[in-house]
């Protein structure tokens, strides 16, 4: 396959937008409820825009820039969506599994899955909302074995239960660590086994 055209200094953008649109159509066709979110600001800022933004916050917070992503509405069907993305859409490799706690006030965390297609040379971002009071989702390890350690990491950092994970122990944190450090409402401990943390 031809190498994708480089349209920005940070890599091809149009290829990824195209991949997101195609995946959106394919997932919807399979009966999965998916929303496609595409940035509505142009890829490149106008001259002086960055300077203006640096002084003052943007007036329109609904205007955004960056990558497009897909939002899966029903988290119970995550594995179905991921298998389809892997088998039918040829995204062979999982690049990253992580989560985002956007705001302490929010009731949901975002589970984020980055996948890469070695044949189409494109990336895709799939998101799923996880309610903070019932933070569980199916483990992607059965579809993408590479999700193993990523899920262990975001599990311990955000308190997400990845159901069906073969080895859901802590990976970076000690086994007896209390709390989920990357949540926005996390309170730093005063001490750990007699070691002062302040």
């Amino acid at each position: 396959m031809e190498a994708p055209k480089r349209d920005t200094a940070w890599g091809p953008m149009e290829v990824h937008f195209q991949a997101a649109r195609e995946a959106h159509a394919a997932l919807q066709e399979a009966g999965l409820e998916v929303e496609l979110h595409q940035p509505n600001l142009p890829i490149f800022a106008e001259e002086g825009e960055a300077k203006r933004l640096a002084k003052k916050k943007a007036d329109e917070p609904h205007e955004w820039r960056g990558d497009a992503f897909l939002l899966l509405k029903d988290r119970e069907r995550l594995l179905e969506a991921l298998s389809l993305i892997r088998e039918q859409l040829a995204f062979q490799q999982i690049v990253d599994v992580t989560a985002v706690d956007f705001d302490a006030e929010d009731s949901v965390l975002w589970g984020v899955y980055q996948v890469l297609s070695l044949t189409k040379k494109a990336r895709l971002t799939l998101k799923v909302h996880l309610p903070k009071d019932d933070c569980r989702v199916a483990s992607a390890v059965s579809v993408y074995p590479g999700a193993d350690w990523h899920e262990r990491e975001s599990g311990e950092m955000y308190g997400i239960t990845y159901e069906g994970h073969p080895d859901p122990r802590n990976i970076l944190l000690p086994d007896d660590w209390v709390g989920y450090p990357l949540r926005k409402d996390y309170e730093f401990p005063e001490e750990y086994h007699g070691i002062s943390c302040v």
């Binding site: 890599g11 640096a54 002084k55 916050k57 956007f102």
Partner: peptide, 30 residues
């Protein structure tokens, strides 16, 4: 010239993966 020490990027999220000597190094910024 537009980028100074104070940076307030537009809202949104960006993932950029580059070829590091060890493999794909990605930064995902929201």
């Amino acid at each position: 010239p537009d980028v100074s020490l104070t940076i307030r990027p537009a809202p949104g999220e960006a993932y950029v993966g580059i070829e590091n000597p060890r493999g794909e190094l990605g930064h995902y910024v929201v």
